[in-house]
């Protein structure tokens, strides 16, 4: 495995250190299943700067996790296939790299935190082994050195008694501590981009806050680009800089966090914000978006949201789907009636 040792950042052909750490352009992913082709991601584009947090927001099944897996190159394939688009890491299109090169990008430059740390950590190896493995396989360290580094990492994510706990198995940790191990694993090789796929969903609220604070702190220290995938509007409001809202495999609105909370320009975003329970509206019926998201094997023509949309008119039911309209110099929304939606407060 000598090729893995000491991966240098300039080893990739075409690498431009001044380019953005991560840029996704028109990404398309489909799953070829027996019941037809599921169009999980249909032209997703976003980018993220160093030190910035990009939230990707959406319901279950809107394609946000698939987007993350496509970026990492860990889609289950078959049935999943990337059929188009570009994933640029500092100007290098990862989709064009051979698997042997792409493998070195993972964990080294772009790392990922998974949702459920209990199932995402291997139950039969100690956390020390699973952390140390990164240093041994990517940096060619000895077992002892790797273990020492693992202890440092556990310290970094504030796990008490790291020296002893490094020999424990994942099931011996509490949920929050396990997620810290997961974070330590993602940060081990100093990646420039961190993708966190619903990092706090499996945790209770107080632990959620601690984990998000830890992530924010580590991101600040290392000037990492963070892609935060979530369906939790509360988490987003606290930590995100920019938001991409996804629906049925498309980004339907893209804006800075304050703009989106102040004046959503897409009916779906608006519906999401209205469905947050509010103390000042106690006693009233909670507003919810009616209906269900479409099956990805059978996305309706036109705007995918039209069957559930209260602004929908005939134009929304016809292909092509609305393009992203420039709402302001820094934000876009994919709705024919964005002006009405935004103005209608």
């Amino acid at each position: 495995m000598s090729t893995d040792v000491n991966v240098k950042l300039d080893a990739l052909p075409g690498l431009d250190p001044k380019a953005l750490p991560l840029q996704v352009k028109n990404l398309q992913v489909e799953f070829r299943t027996r019941n037809g082709i599921a169009h999980a991601v249909n032209g997703v584009s976003f980018d993220v700067r160093a030190g910035e947090t990009r939230a990707i927001l959406g319901e279950s099944g809107c394609g946000k996790s698939v987007t993350a897996q496509a970026i990492m190159g860990i889609l289950d394939s078959p049935p999943g296939f990337v059929t188009g688009g570009e994933i640029l890491y500092r100007g290098v299109d990862l989709l064009k790299l051979p698997e042997s090169e792409r493998r070195k990008v993972r964990a080294n430059r772009i790392a990922m935190i998974f949702q459920d740390a209990l199932s995402a950590l291997n139950p039969v190896f100690t956390v020390g082994f699973q952390l140390g493995e990164l240093f041994r396989k990517h940096r060619g360290m000895s077992r002892q050195d790797a273990k020492a580094r693992s202890v440092e990492l556990l310290d970094l994510v504030k796990i008490p008694a790291a020296k002893q706990r490094v020999n424990d198995y994942p099931h011996q940790f509490s949920g929050g501590m396990r997620q810290r191990v997961m974070i330590a694993m993602a940060l081990a090789l100093d990646p420039e981009v961190l993708i966190a796929d619903e990092p706090t969903t499996a945790l209770d609220v107080t632990v959620q806050a601690q984990i998000m604070a830890l992530l924010a702190e580590l991101q600040r220290e290392r000037n990492m680009a963070l892609v935060l995938i979530t369906h939790d509007m509360g988490v987003v409001a606290d930590v995100a800089d920019r938001i991409s809202v996804m629906y049925a495999g498309r980004v339907i609105e893209e804006a800075g966090v304050h703009e989106i909370y102040a004046s959503p320009a897409h009916p779906y975003t608006k519906g999401l914000l209205e469905s947050i329970p509010r103390l000042d509206l106690k006693g009233q019926e909670l507003s919810a978006i009616k209906g269900l998201p479409p099956a990805l094997t059978n996305i309706p023509p036109g705007c995918a949201f039209n069957p559930r949309c209260r602004y929908a008119q005939d134009v929304c039911k016809q292909d092509p789907a609305p393009a992203l309209f420039q709402v302001s110099p820094s934000r876009t929304a994919a709705c024919h009636f964005w002006k009405e939606v935004k103005g209608d407060e």
Partner: peptide, 10 residues
């Protein structure tokens, strides 16, 4: 999931 994690570890 842990096999996917192993892949994500490069």
């Amino acid at each position: 999931d842990y096999v996917r994690t192993a892949k994500a570890k490069g």
